[in-house]
């Protein structure tokens, strides 16, 4: 498996995996990057290169776990990144899915039951996703930030008490895809439907990566801090 290095040109990363584009945006990186390397860009934008590489490499390789880079950055950096990701979901991806589903429904026969059911299902999914993300924004992240900044344990909580399963939300997204791929009779515009499924699939991949960063990077780091403080 390919692991990107500090000395790689950023343009090379994008050519290897264009799904990294929104990931770069979350770091505030804009295109027109000439022949700059990862190290150059990180210096310019004041990003820790270890953190940047950990994020792009876990995105690029599903099983990769950056054991060593993990020690080189702060949980606050991760939270800043995760918050950017949440913004990207709610300001761009979810409205795009809303819009495509609306267009898709409009392209089908109004009596058609299948897409109406999908609509109801999607609304429920969206509600759960929103709750899940709100929970992280309002409870989990502030807990971690407080722990890192004040070096004090909260007697009432540990990071484990906030732990929630991602799997249920992920399951629904996959179900949504399967319902359309397998069970809805295609009484709709095919090109809109393809766009819809491709957008869902990319979102699914992004969410998986997001969950991996939370579970495999943020969680263990926080537990380590708790242990150091004598939990």
């Amino acid at each position: 498996m390919e692991i990107f290095k500090k000395s790689d040109k950023l343009s090379y990363l994008i050519h290897r995996n264009y799904h990294l584009l929104p990931v770069l945006n979350r770091f505030g990186i804009k295109l027109g990057i000439k022949d700059k390397t990862v190290e150059d860009i990180c210096r310019e934008r004041k990003i820790s290169p270890g953190f940047f590489l950990a994020i792009v490499n876990t995105y690029h390789n599903e099983e990769y776990f950056p054991r060593e880079e993990l020690l080189s950055f702060s949980p606050l950096e991760i939270i800043r990144y995760l918050r950017k990701t949440h913004q990207y979901y709610f300001q761009y991806v979810v409205p795009k899915i809303d819009d495509l589903l609306e267009k898709l429904t409009a392209s089908s026969h109004p009596d058609f039951k299948g897409l109406q059911m999908v609509n109801v299902f999607y609304k429920k999914y969206k509600k759960e996703l929103t709750q899940h993300i709100d929970h992280e924004e309002e409870r989990v992240f502030p807990y971690v930030i407080n722990l890192v900044k004040n070096h004090k344990l909260d007697p009432k909580y540990t990071i484990r008490s906030f732990e929630q399963e991602h799997s249920d939300v992920d399951e629904k997204l996959n179900d949504l895809k399967n319902l359309i791929i397998k069970y809805i009779s295609p009484d709709y515009d095919e090109n809109i439907c393809n766009d819809f499924l491709i957008t869902l699939s990319l979102f699914e991949k992004d969410l998986e990566d997001h969950a991996r960063i939370e579970d495999k990077i943020m969680m263990p780091m926080t537990i380590e801090i708790e242990n150091k403080l004598g939990r």
């Binding site: 249920d168 629904k172 319902l179 397998k182």
Partner: peptide, 9 residues
């Protein structure tokens, strides 16, 4: 068989 996991699905 169906590939669907969630109850609402």
């Amino acid at each position: 068989k169906t590939g669907i996991k969630s109850i609402s699905g």
